[in-house]
Computed example of a mutant assay.
Amino acid sequence: MANEGSVKRAIGLMSGTSMDGIDLALLDTDGDAVVLRGASSFTPFDPKFRKRLEVGLEAAKAIEERDQRPGDLVAIETELTDLHARAVQAFLTREGLPAGDIDVIGFHGQTVLHRPRQALTVQLGDGAVLAAETGIDVVYDLRARDMELGGQGAPLVPAYHRALAAGLSGDWAGKMPVAFVNIGGISNITYIGADGTLLAFDSGPGNALIDQWVTRHAGIPYDSGGAIASEGRVLSGLANRYLSSPFFTARERISLDRNDFLPPEDHEAGLEDGARTLAFVTAAAIEKAQAHLPEKPKLWILTGGGRHNRMIVEDLTVATRHSGEVIIAEEAGLNGDSMEAEAWAWLAVRSLAGLPITYPGTTGVTEPATGGVLACSKGTQTQAVKPEN
């Protein structure tokens, strides 16, 4: 390893459910309280590859075992891994860093199937190949062990959110309970209580429905800033159809797959009204999450691409006006674009130390659990990361 002692220099790689590209973040961390955030980058997928991923999602529906790759998924996985390797190499060149300065890469890969009730999750991406191509050790497949132990394999970022909450300063220091809300393709919430209580779960649709809607009707990948939604109105009947889903009232919090909520039919709304209604649904779903929390948050910190959609932010601000304050991550000195990539760097270091990455209150796992697979750069041999104790 390049760095001695418990603090390691890590790169985190995240390709989320929005499938727009690769977020990369550099972190110096001990996988616990030490969090020194560094540079970050974003590498967009070109439209052709994004379309291939969308087709791959359909093929992935046939998967029954984690190692199955029906349809074109073998080729997609190869290309995806190569794109991640090139993103790392470009970042290192830009920052003037040799590969030897990086201790480990935390590699998420691309989720193409997530069925927690079947303990089945599939992320495309070959950690051994990535390690060989970059010359850096890689920790990957961080969700599987949690599912083997009865968890839902998601969300995995909450433990990192708790570390960030402990480091909040200024007006935000000690403002508890605090909720981090990541509005990606699917939205998820992390609740951190004043007593250290850690709860997390998916709150409902995030950007995925909006992205699919505007792609289909306007030929663009997303509603930049909520501009399209701002021209529309909320269709109450359509919104209520989404918000009456049993998902929101069920006692058990489940981890969502991209296909659990689908965009409206073409005849149900025009472009602007559809985008506006889906933005409202995203915010309302987040607000509904309060019913599953011990206390209403005093502070909501928004991360992920959805924080840029002003209609989502405005709707959530109105919905929570009697309980807490809504801010975007940057107002708290954080980076809302790279936070999940940072988390994967932090989780990789934590995994190497054999520390828990998931908890009963975050994924439903039976006991705090570590996880991940280590692919060494000096060879193709991989080994499961095991707790030190």
Rank of each mutant, 00 (worst) to 15 (best):
I357C: 03
E64R: 14
A62Q: 13
A128L: 07
L235W: 11
G150N: 01
K51F: 07
P297F: 08
V138I: 14
T363D: 03
A319S: 06
L149R: 15
P297Q: 10
F42N: 06
G204F: 06
A227I: 01
G56K: 04
G135Q: 13
T111C: 07
K378I: 15
A227L: 03
Q123C: 12
P263H: 01
M339Y: 08
E77I: 09
D82A: 13
E77W: 02
W300N: 03
T320I: 03
A194Y: 07
I327D: 05
S338M: 07
T134P: 14
I102P: 06
G56N: 10
L355Y: 11
T190Y: 08
L156W: 00
D103F: 13
T249G: 09
G196C: 05
D202C: 13
L57P: 01
G226F: 00
L149T: 10
L299W: 03
E388H: 12
E367S: 15
R86I: 03
V139E: 06
Q89D: 15
D141W: 05
R94I: 08
H267Y: 14
P356V: 07
T370F: 07
G5K: 10
F107M: 15
A375K: 14
V365R: 11
D126H: 08
G167V: 09
V365T: 05
G12P: 12
L156K: 04
A131K: 14
T197L: 13
T380W: 15
T366A: 15
A99E: 15
R145I: 05
D146A: 02
D202T: 13
R66Q: 11
E265S: 05
W213Q: 00
V88K: 03
P221V: 01
L243N: 09
H108L: 12
A60R: 03
H308I: 01
S230H: 10
L26S: 05
G193K: 10
F107A: 12
E54Q: 09
L168M: 12
G232T: 02
Q381N: 13
R115I: 04
Q212R: 12
E58I: 15
F45Y: 15
Q118G: 08
R162I: 03
T370Y: 03
L73N: 09
A353Y: 13
L80C: 06
